[in-house]
Design a binder for these strands. Structure first.
Lengths: 199, 199
DNA sequence: TCTAACAATTAGGAGTGCTAATTAAATGCC
DNA sequence: GGCATTTAATTAGCACTCCTAATTGTTAGA
């Protein structure tokens, strides 16, 4: 194994994940062109659509990982395109964002975006795929714990949430996505990997 | 955001990778602020620095996954900051880009960027880490074959790479460049000694 | 030679992202 | 109750990203 530079396994993985992220971004530009959306707009649309009761602008900004003014600007573009509606809430400082019917349609089109990536993943042998999922899940869990990723939507309505699986334990609940137990103090209000539980 | 849609392992991985990519991008903005670089500039700097003989603008654009005009604009900013030098080559249409001394210094600072991600990766058990590296490598190779990514300098596409030469051994692969055996944990995604294999 | 292909740039336009400052509404506290 | 603080969102101003289309040289091919 040649090396003058740092070459730890860890570093190679970091580099690889960064490359995949880059590929996703540049792919998003192309896919977005078809719908007239930029990557950020698409992501905002998805986040808003994922919140049935609407989202505030600040929460959206946190979810996108950008500043409030940036989010405001993006929302402005989406409103101008009639994809998103703004409503004033009980707290009359705040805005509540929801999708319009048209926005709903477009958001559905956005859903399958990482499809080309999934093709690549699907080409893996089953064993490697499982290992990859475990690794990615754990990385995400660590990032959330470090605060690098914004938690979204609440566990209580999440299909991955298994309350009191370990009754009596200090960490009685179980999250199936990151495959780890956690306690009441770890309950998420807004988890990016949230998926609505079946009714 | 997947909802009642397919929840396959594959889709989970796709979503997870996208999420990690988002985290990386927003982190890059913060880290970049310290050096006065945007994420794209940092990436361009790294790519130029990785090519000892210099790169052309078109190659750079492909590597960044953007159009030539976008790359041109980014390079203009780097040249203005005295981090990159442009030279006219034998082909007088083409430009050859190299780092200035100052650019070299800054590029070194950029190298450790995904550090916060690496912390997360380092927290994995060794087995999972190796499996993650193998999975990430294969995903990248598939993306390259699909044309979604510009060819990277990884073992899987290297002429010196002899996979499973010592099948059954703990270090089954062989690198012909350093003439030594190595295992999955030694797989490179960005190797300075990479030479593309014949098609 | 003359045309096609190619490398890079310019022009023009929408969007992203930042910090700092502003407006408006809700809270807190004496 | 009243006034200072905090909070939500926006505006202003700036640099950069990214695109397509058109332009200017330069090289290579029929």
């Amino acid at each position: 194994m040649p090396s003058r530079k740092s070459t730890s396994e860890t570093r190679q993985i970091g580099t690889g994940l960064a490359r995949i992220g880059d590929a996703l971004r540049s792919q998003a530009w192309q896919q977005g062109a078809e719908l007239g959306l930029t990557p950020t707009q698409a992501r905002a649309l998805a986040l808003i659509g994922a919140s049935p009761d609407g989202v505030g602008l600040t929460a959206l900004a946190r979810g996108l990982g950008v500043s409030a003014p940036s989010a405001s600007e993006t929302v402005k573009a989406l409103v101008a395109r009639n994809l998103v509606a703004k409503v004033r809430g009980t707290d009359r400082r705040a805005t509540i964002l929801t999708l319009t019917d048209e926005g709903e349609t477009v958001a559905n089109g956005v859903e399958g975006w990482p499809g080309f990536l999934e093709d690549a993943v699907a080409a893996l042998p089953a064993d490697d795929r499982t290992a990859l999922l475990r690794g990615v899940s754990q990385v995400i869990r660590t990032l959330q714990e470090q605060g690098g990723i914004d938690p979204q939507r609440q566990c209580l309505t999440c299909r991955y949430f298994q309350p009191n699986r370990y009754a009596g334990s200090a960490r009685p609940h179980h999250c199936g996505f990151v495959d780890a137990p956690f306690g009441d103090s770890g309950l998420r209000i807004d988890c990016p990997d949230h998926e609505a539980a079946a009714v």
